[in-house]
Design a protein around this nucleic acid. Structure first.
Length: 309
DNA sequence: AACTACCACAACCGCGTTCTA
DNA sequence: GTAGAACGCGGTTGTGGTAGT
């Protein structure tokens, strides 16, 4: 109990069954409103905010309490977060039985997991390219929409494709109209890479990140790193989700192409002063994933193909 | 068995917005 | 038009359960 200046008390902490009953009775009589009157009438020593929160998150009918997010729900959250940002209440409206708090907690957990992975990069192996040492760090767990990467199955329902692979230049080419531009569509982007030789390790001669469109010569010039410098494939942001979140929806004045150019790549490709991906290690996508953190693989394997969406 | 790390969840807090007198 | 109340939302923290060592 917390004593207020007016001499009254406000209770905090876990709700009891008796309190829940009082709250439910109030809603049955008055509807889900007048939360402050619950305290003013002396029904409960709780603030209106606390009462509303309890009702919305726990007592409201048709809530999926004690039920983990399904694969489809996870997919919806990830996709809508990419579209709306941290608008949990809005995202929750697309998920029957889920509250904004549910969605927020779900996302927070995934984010923390990702941060943990990124903040503890463990070198997987060092590779030598043209006599220069390159250290490859673990890549972060990617959002769940990467399931078809492992299965190499078509993904027709996941719209739109944000980019396609230019097989001649081995680079991603953005599509002009980006409906959901603040998330690289890992599922489709990587799906189309299936079977295509890609560069897993960023060359010391190249920046670990390249714009997904053709870089300008000045960009290329400025991207050359000193020799013998360790390249950490960790994105520039504190974590992958930050990286995504930093990408706000494009302003009206910005074309999809311009916005796309600002998107971070995931370090799958390097660029060279010639503008081409340096194919120091041409691997198929299968062995590309061999060195991923096991927990990432577990996560991916747990997901069915999105084609059933 | 004890300890630790992680996860899921509940609840609180601060702040911005909307409502109302 | 305005100030205070009420409400809604997003961020953060606390806690209990559980799996791993």
């Amino acid at each position: 109990m917390e004593r207020q200046s007016d001499g009254t008390y406000i209770k905090k902490g876990p709700w009891t069954a008796e309190e829940d009953e009082v709250l439910i009775n109030h809603v049955n009589r008055n509807g889900p409103r007048d939360w402050s009157s619950i305290r003013s009438k002396g029904l409960l020593p709780r603030t209106g905010k606390s009462c509303r929160l309890r009702w919305v998150n726990k007592l409201r009918p048709n809530l999926k309490t004690g039920c983990k997010f399904s694969v489809e729900e996870e997919r919806v959250v990830i996709e809508l977060q990419a579209e709306f940002g941290n608008k949990w209440a809005k995202i929750a409206t697309y998920l029957p039985g889920r509250t904004d708090n549910d969605v927020k907690n779900f996302w927070s957990t995934r984010r923390k997991r990702l941060e943990r992975i990124l903040h503890k990069p463990s070198p997987l192996k060092s590779q030598t390219t043209k006599g220069k040492n390159v250290v490859v760090h673990q890549l972060p767990k990617v959002p769940s929409c990467s399931s078809t990467i492992m299965e190499a199955t078509p993904c027709h329902s996941f719209q739109p494709n944000y980019a396609y692979l230019d097989s001649e230049e081995l680079r991603m080419v953005p599509l002009p109209d980006l409906e959901k531009p603040n998330l690289i569509n890992l599922e489709t982007d990587l799906h189309i890479l299936e079977g295509t030789p890609i560069q897993r390790v960023a060359s010391i001669d190249s920046s670990p990140y390249c714009p997904l469109s053709q870089p300008s010569q000045s960009q290329l010039d400025s991207s050359v790193l000193p020799q013998n410098q360790e390249i950490n494939l960790e994105p520039t942001g504190s974590n992958l989700f930050d990286m995504f979140e930093q990408q706000e929806a494009p302003p009206e004045s910005e074309s999809g192409q311009e916005f796309f150019n600002r998107l971070p790549s995931l370090g799958f490709m390097g660029k060279t002063p010639t503008g081409l991906v340096e194919s120091t290690s041409t691997e198929t996508l299968n062995n590309f994933f061999e060195d991923f953190p096991p927990e990432m693989i577990d996560y991916l394997e747990a997901l069915p193909s999105s084609s059933g969406l």
